[in-house]
Structure formats: structure tokens, C-alpha cells
Design a protein around this nucleic acid. Structure first.
Lengths: 205, 205, 205, 205
DNA sequence: TATGAATGAGAGTTCATTCAT
DNA sequence: AATGAATGAACTCTCATTCAT
């Protein structure tokens, strides 16, 4: 194996700490996870942690960024699909898969809650969330366009509902049965069923 | 004001502690709220807290019970409305109002998250959640019946989606704009638009 | 059953509290036993406790007094036995029995330790302990006299050793095997074997 | 003084905490001594305490180990003395000296009491106590052998009595006059006087 | 006399963070 | 860059005691 350059080694440490933090936060929550535990689980000391992240909140925020980035990338890659049927299949598959990891979903919920309670966290969070939301709105609009349907409600609201279901379902009673994907598909179906052809005009009746 | 009997005084203390706890948990989360703060905010000492509630978890659970009880009562009172139009108006009003208090909704989210992390909390929680879920399923089925519509998806899943939106929306980006009620109404609209008359038979075409 | 007079009822309450306290202190130690637990175990409230004893320390001292009184009475009743052989048999029986209750012995140890740490407790304790010690010294001297033996060491030291063994054995490793009685008998044997006839004069050879 | 290495510094902190704990426990008892007080008296923060010992119980147990280790070493060093007269002088000197510190003796008593009340403490305690007991039994047997005397009672019982006196005497009335050494010497004298030459056969007469 | 709600000081313990090594 | 000993504030919870009822 090639010797890692100093920069590479640092990046690697960072990745390992992030992965360890994701596990810890998902399992124990923001307050319940300790910096010590995160560092140790990644195979480092507390000192190493603080060499890589300014604070516990900082790694939390970094985690959030990582996650949102991933979701945005997924949305973009879906849109790149030229065939609309394939796009819809891909969408359904993603809804299932993306939220397959209950730990990850819980982490999302944790992040959202925590962001409401720390000004500094919220500041960093807002921008990312905005970007995801914008991306999702654009995506939904595009999908309706490609399906030739008129959205039955403001696209921004539809997007918000998807996000709400995603966050809310992760917290449902039964930890085993991850409903997130299923409920989002259900909502997708409702929305599609409630839609009318785009060329049907504006009138409802 | 009449002098309070000992029992009344105790009940009053309990209520005040519960109210204070609701505020504290909503503002700072379960981990972030301290027993000391809850007690002081209610005008009592830590000792008074512990002579009324066995633990921090206990008051959290009591709060949960109070909230769920309130929601179940609201559902039942809605169903008691004989006029279906009035019922639907009441339902929409309730969706708006019941989730008007963002603090309360956040508390719900917090409870759900916390329940996943404490065995003892989860134990007490499960039963109540079950009751609310059952109630909601029955309510939704009844509403479809009275509207003469066939549910476009399993009623249990529709109920679960409502609960997910309720929990998830409370956590949305903007703490000011409480979207909970609006998104649930949106979902209600989708569901109704996606439904067909009950007497249309089972066939989709 | 005859109705108890107020004074009798009070005395009864006191006795029950004392008995409950003896159990509690023996099981959990002075610090570990709570006033609440003592009162409840006796079937009363904390208020009743404080109506009967000024403080936790006070009931502890009262317990000590009760115990020492009992031991002094036992010693006196042994000495009243005119037949020396019977006296010795009675002594051995008492050594076995009096220390049969490991809880009681532990209580004694607890009391002695605690008395060293509270000036007010020590004050009340000293007098009682003095009385027991004096009584024991007199008893041992009398026994030697009746046996026609000369004590092989100062009688006060022999008495102190008995007391030390009694207290110390109660704390031995194995909670089940109460060695107190056995070890005191062993010491008694040693002392007797090491003694010479009183009329043998002062010379050792 | 040379700058301490990190390891040395840690060991020093540990020693200081142990010394401070010994003082605190002896003065105030297990329950009466607080972790805060122990740490402060040693010149450290509570945090430093907990980075050196897992719990209050843990330092208590460490203290016990230290003490027992010292006693076992003393016994062994006594036995190494080839001259029997010198050994006996050494033994008497040790009985006086080893128990000279009333605080240390009280600590022993406290430990024994506490061990009966905490399962985890008792677990760690039992092994050490066993080792000391075994050591003492071997020592006493060896002494009798070298003196050419036959023990007048089972050696294990004689050892148990020594331990009981040691523990019990520490708790005696007068905190100033430490009787421990004197009473153990007295018991030693009794035992020796009560012994017969080993070659005198089994018969008592 | 007895009750038990309330007090308030103080307990053991945890943990994010700092900094000398 | 990494270590981990030390800090110190904050936490949940306990309990002897008081006092209005």
C-alpha cells in the first residue's frame, strides 16, 4: 500500500471521525454521544478530534453538509436520466434506498432538532437546507413537466411535505419497520393520482 | 381565592411543573433542559420536583400522556359532529390549530426521538402511541365512510403519514413559519382528490 | 384488645421506630439508612418520626443506649448465678447467643465508628460505654475470683480485648459465618489456660 | 527537581489522591467523605479524580489493596528473620507500629463494613482478604514451629482473632489511646502462655 | 400527635474543552 | 498532528429537616 501523504492522512482521519460521529449521533443523539467516544471509536484520541474539528458542533455540521451534499447529488443524477419511465423507477428506488438506514434517518431528525437550538449551528444549517430545498423544488417541477402533469399544489409545499415525511417517519414507533420510504411513495402516489394533465387548462371543474 | 387544600395544592404544583417542563423541553430539548431549570421556572425547588415526579424521564412521560390524551379527545369530539361538512371544517380547523404551538410540536418530535433511546421511556410510550394510532385509523375510516369515498391507500398508512408529517414538519427549517397544519391539509387534499366513490366497485378502471 | 392510653401509644410508636431503625442501620449503615425508610418501615410518616426523635442521630443514640442496657443486664444476671459451673456455662451460652444476630453486631460496629465522628453522638456514647466497660471489668474480676484464678493480665485489658473481638469479628469477611461467639470463647479459653491459681503467689516460676 | 514525565506526573497525582482519600475516609467515613473534598485536599479538581479512578468505590478499593499489600509484605519480611528471638521482637514491634496510625486502623474497619454493603466492593475485597488471611495463618504456624510450641487452638481461629482484635480495637471508645497494638500483644501472650511444647504429645494432662 | 409537601444543600458523576508534552 | 491529564461547570438525584395543615 502506498504511503499516504500528510494531507491524505489528514483527510483520512477526518473521514474516519465523521463516520464514527454519524454512528454515535444516530445511536445516542447529539447530547448522548461524547467526543471521547467518537474519537475512540475512530481509533484516535480526543486531541486528534480537536485537531480536525473545532468543536462537537462543528463535526455535527460537517456531517450535515456531507449528508445534504449526497442527497443533492442523488437528485441531480436522477434528473440526468433521459427516459422518464426510468426516472420514475429510479425515484422510487431512491426513496426506498436512501432512507433504508434508520440510523441515518434518525441522524437527520437529530440534526434538524439540534439546529433549532443552536444559533451557530442553525446559521450553517440554513444555507445547506435552502440548497436542498431549492434542488428538490426544481426536481419536482421537472418531474411534473416530464410527466405532462400539473402539480395539484404549490411545488414548494409538495417538496416540504416530502421532507417532513422523511424526517417524521424516521421517528415512528417501531424502530424495526422503517416506514420512511413506503410513506414517501404513498405520498408520491397520492400526488400523482391527484394531478391532472398539464394541458387540461387551469379550471378545476 | 379560596385557600387550597393540601391535595389541591399538590395538584397545582404538579400542573405548574408540567407546564414548565413543556416549555423547557420544547426550547432546549430533553437533554438540554435541566430539572433545576424546570423546577425554578415553575417557582419550586428541585426537591419539590422530585417529590412530584420520580425522575426527569417520568415528567417527560407524563407530558407525553397529557398531550396524547388531548389529541385523542379532539379526535373523538370531531367524530361526534353529525354534519359531515361541519366535521370537515372542524378537521381543517383542528389541523391548523392543534399544531399551532410549534413548541408543542417540537416536544412531540423530541419525545419520539427520546423514546427510541430509553427502554423505560419507550415502554410507557408505546401503549399511548398505539392508542392514538388506533384512534386516528378509526377516525380516518369513519371520515371516508361519511364522505362516501374509498381510501386510495391502506388507512393505516394514511394515518402513519399524517403522524409523520406532524412530527416532521415541526422540525422544518424556519422555526417561525409553522407548516405542520398547512402540510397536513395539503396531504388531506391529495388524499381526497386521489379517492374515488366507494360505490364505484373495486376495479380501478 | 384494650384501648392504649396516649402515653402507651406514644411509647409503642417509639419502640416500633427503634426496631425499624435497628434493622435499617444494620442493613445499610448510618449514612445509608434514611429517616423516611425507617419511618415507613415502622408504619409511620416522617412527621411521626420527628415527633418522637429530635434527629437521626438521636434515634441512633437511643438505639445504642438500648443495646448497652441489654448487655449490662445480661452481665448482671449472669453474676447472680450462685453456682460457678453454671455461671461459666451461662457465660459461654451468652457469648454464643448475644452475638448471634450479625445485624446487631454490625449495628454495634456502626455505632462505634459513627460515635467517633460526631461530637454530640460521642458525648452521649462515652458515658454508656464507660458503664458497660466498668460492668464487664467487675464481672471478669468476679469470675476469676470465683474460679480461684489470678488474671494473667490487667482485667481492664482483658475486658477491652473482649469488646474488641466482639466488634471486630462482626465485620469479618464471611457474612454468613458469625465468628463473634466462637472467637470470644477461644479467647476465654486462652485466658483461662494462661491463668494460675490465685494462691500461687506473684512469682512466675 | 527534575521535570516529571507525563507518566510520572500521573502516578504522582494518583498517589496524592490515594493519600488524601485515606485521610478523608479515616476522618469522615466512607459515606462522610466526599469525592470533592478528596480531590481538593490533594490539590486537584473532581475531574482529575475521575480521570484517575473510576468511582469513589474504586479509590476505596485501591486503598484497601495498598494497605493489605503492605501488611503482607511486613509479614513476609518478619518471617525472613533467621533468629527466632529477633523475630519475636520484630513481631511485637510490628504489632505496636503497624497499628500506630489510628486513622489507618479506622480505615480498615470502615472498609470491612462497607464491603458488606456493596457487592462490587465485596468482590474485589474478598480476594485480598483471603490472601492476607492465608499469609497470616502460615506465619502463625511458622512461629509456633520455630518456638517449638503446639498451638492451643486451630491456627486459623487464632489468625481470625488477631484480625478481629485489630479491627475492633480501632473502634474503641478513646480515639487518642490506640489500644490495637497492646491488645494484640496481650492476646499473643495469652496464646503463648496457653501453649505447650510441641513434643509433649497430644494429651492434655 | 401526625402528616407529607417543600426545602436546599450537597452528593457522585459526566463531558466539552484546553494545553503542556 | 496527536496525546491524554486536567479542568470546571453542569447534570440528575438524595435526604435530613421544617412547617402549614
Amino acid at each position: 500500500m502506498a504511503r499516504l501523504s500528510r494531507e491524505e492522512s489528514r483527510a483520512r482521519t477526518r473521514e474516519q471521525l465523521l463516520a464514527s460521529a454519524a454512528r454515535a449521533f444516530a445511536r445516542a443523539g447529539y447530547g448522548g454521544a461524547s467526543v471521547d467516544e467518537i474519537a475512540e471509536d475512530a481509533g484516535f484520541s480526543k486531541g486528534a478530534f480537536y485537531s480536525n474539528f473545532a468543536s462537537k458542533e462543528a463535526i455535527f455540521l460537517a456531517l450535515l453538509e456531507q449528508k445534504k451534499r449526497g442527497e443533492i447529488a442523488a437528485i441531480r443524477s436522477l434528473l440526468a436520466e433521459p427516459d422518464t419511465d426510468a426516472l420514475m423507477r429510479g425515484l422510487r428506488a431512491w426513496l426506498d434506498a436512501a432512507h433504508d438506514d434508520p440510523a441515518l434517518s434518525l441522524l437527520a431528525a437529530e440534526i434538524e432538532l439540534q439546529a433549532r437550538r443552536s444559533e451557530s449551528l442553525a446559521a450553517g444549517y440554513r444555507a445547506l437546507q435552502e440548497r436542498l430545498s431549492t434542488e428538490l423544488v426544481g426536481f419536482i417541477a421537472a418531474v411534473f413537466g416530464r410527466l405532462g402533469l400539473r402539480p395539484p399544489a404549490p411545488v414548494a409545499d409538495i417538496a416540504a411535505t416530502f421532507i417532513a415525511i422523511s424526517n417524521g417517519a424516521a421517528m415512528a414507533t417501531d424502530p424495526g419497520a422503517n416506514q420512511s420510504g413506503r410513506l414517501m411513495q404513498l405520498f408520491l402516489d397520492m400526488v400523482l393520482k391527484a394531478s391532472r394533465p398539464a394541458d387540461a387548462g387551469d379550471s378545476d371543474g
